[in-house]
Design a protein around this nucleic acid. Structure first.
Length: 284
DNA sequence: CCCCAGTCCTGCGGGC
DNA sequence: TGCCCGCAGGACTGGG
């Protein structure tokens, strides 16, 4: 499930397409059910063919391919989408092929097994409308301690649930939310408005540490093997997971607690009840 | 406004 | 062995 580290790895992996001219785009017929591609493929082709790629960015969990026309191709991988320069895992779920002119790389691919992902060509206004700071909070990598607190401290929501809100902070998903709170030593069920300043500082620090390390490891490839980088290679951060998908194992933090799986807002949360305790009553 | 439940989708693994 | 069901969680929508 691509979150910030995986999408950032995709972005870096496709950097060689910068400077390339787009020759054509096609939507492979083999995909069973079509994903959303907006606008429809003919209009899409019309607007991108002949244009040169000027940059590759990331906005939250989306890859942004910028064109010299001022428009941008925004790729949203959601659960199982991959952005590739190499051959995809299977022929079957290839969703979009962007053919490039000249030498290498020859094409940029979007592959998506489950088909929840989407690709959208947007102009500057639509980009702001959809991905501007009214819709997305500050990028988690550029988060300051003050901003984090400012945006979440008033909420009654559990901190784990709040970290998933892309309007509050952009880029954190279910896997890294558990990892961040474990490193911070904060109970995922704590309401935001109950966190103390030291805990906000710990969550902020852990956010940057976890995400930066995960990027260094090129993201997490879970046992289902879905996530791959732009060259269709697995990431390495799954071996560093502290709690995610490790229910029943001994906590790597305290060495005493057993990692527990709970459900919050219909999503799995993993944590150690021993070192991520609820707030101690003040004055003990 | 704030928050939760339901929705999309496919592949996999547990249970019978 | 084979089938069915539930689960995985991105982002979005509708409703209380």
């Amino acid at each position: 499930m691509p979150e910030l580290p995986e999408v950032e790895t995709m972005r870096r992996g496709i950097a060689p397409i910068v400077g390339c001219r787009i020759r054509d785009v096609e939507r492979p017929k083999c995909a069973k059910r079509p994903i959303l591609i907006a606008p429809r493929i003919d209009a899409f082709r019309e607007r991108v063919a002949g244009h040169t790629i000027t940059g590759v960015d990331r906005v939250g969990k989306r890859v942004v391919v910028r064109l010299d026309s001022g428009e941008a191709i925004v790729i949203e991988p959601r659960m199982t989408g991959l952005v590739l320069l190499a051959a995809p895992p299977t022929h079957e779920h290839l969703r979009l092929r962007v053919k490039l002119a000249g030498g290498q790389p020859q094409e940029l691919l979007f592959w998506d097994r489950r088909g929840l992902g989407l690709v959208r060509l947007v102009g500057p206004e639509e980009f702001i409308e959809r991905y501007g700071d009214e819709k997305l909070g500050p990028d988690a990598l550029r988060l300051t301690a003050a901003t984090l607190r400012e945006r979440l401290a008033g909420s009654r929501r559990a901190i784990k649930v709040a970290l998933l809100d892309q309007r509050a902070v952009a880029g954190i998903g279910n896997l890294y939310a558990s990892e961040i709170l474990h490193l911070a030593g904060v109970d995922p069920a704590r309401p935001c408005n109950a966190l103390r300043p030291a805990e906000w500082a710990a969550v902020h620090k852990a956010t940057l540490e976890v995400l930066e390390l995960a990027i260094r490891y090129e993201g997490s490839t879970l046992s289902d093997g879905t996530y791959r980088n732009a060259l269709n290679q697995a990431g390495g951060y799954q071996n560093e997971h502290r709690v995610y998908d490790r229910a029943g194992q001994v906590c790597p933090g305290c060495g005493r607690g057993e990692i527990v799986r709970i459900v919050q807002a219909q999503r799995a949360t993993f944590y150690c009840p021993c070192c991520q305790k609820p707030a101690r009553s003040r004055k003990s």
